[in-house]
């Protein structure tokens, strides 16, 4: 348990250390490179701002209406039976469809329950171990005009399902 905590704390400083030392050894003008890269990150974030506004507004509306509670209310018995936190259900489905829409739902959970609650931690781990399957799959296959994808979708769904189940187990183990 402590080792996982340790990896979490050391990871980013370690990545920074390796990048800086390697950059110095290779005589890269590291600060100039950093600025150039940071500018790119800046543009990326500004680029997602309109998407985020649209999505958070839509989620704000559906949440305030009470419809989301009604839908999850219907699924509560099934979730209880499976030991799955029902508030995380819409996010889990959305995660496979759209990365930006799932971020909206993720932030909604952080807002209501807090990122350090059990469910906040569970969805954080779950988001880091799953992918937007449908978008990426169609992008890659369409780029080379493949129409018969064999077992790719099945494999992607099973791998992501394994990620969700593993996250739930890990969250139960570490944070319950």
């Amino acid at each position: 348990m402590n080792i996982i905590q340790f990896i979490s704390n050391i990871m980013i400083p370690l990545v920074f250390l390796i990048i800086i030392v390697y950059g110095l050894l290779k005589k890269v003008r590291i600060y100039d490179a950093f600025i150039g890269g940071a500018k790119e990150g800046f543009t990326t974030v500004l680029g997602i701002l309109p998407t985020l506004i649209g999505l958070m507004m839509a989620i704000g509306i559906i949440r305030a209406s009470g419809a989301l509670d009604a839908i999850t209310g219907l699924l509560t018995p099934l979730c209880r039976f499976l030991g799955f936190p029902e508030e995380a259900l819409p996010l889990t489905f959305m995660r496979t469809v759209s990365s930006s829409a799932s971020v909206g739902l993720l932030l909604d959970i952080f807002k209501i329950h807090g990122p350090d609650s059990f469910i906040g931690r569970f969805v954080s781990v779950m988001m880091s171990s799953t992918e937007t399957i449908f978008y990426t799959l169609s992008l890659y296959f369409m780029s080379v005009r493949i129409t018969k994808t064999r077992y790719t979708l099945g494999g992607a769904i099973i791998a992501n399902l394994a990620g969700v189940v593993a996250s739930l187990f890990i969250a139960n183990w570490l944070y319950k």
């Binding site: 996982i4 990871m11 931690r121 880091s128 992607a156 791998a159 394994a162 996250s167 890990i170």
Partner: peptide, 17 residues
């Protein structure tokens, strides 16, 4: 704090895949 647990869950999902 979620980095370590995230790596663990990612290993599981990739392994299963």
């Amino acid at each position: 704090e979620i980095i370590g647990p995230g790596i663990l869950a990612t290993l599981v999902s990739t392994g299963v895949g």
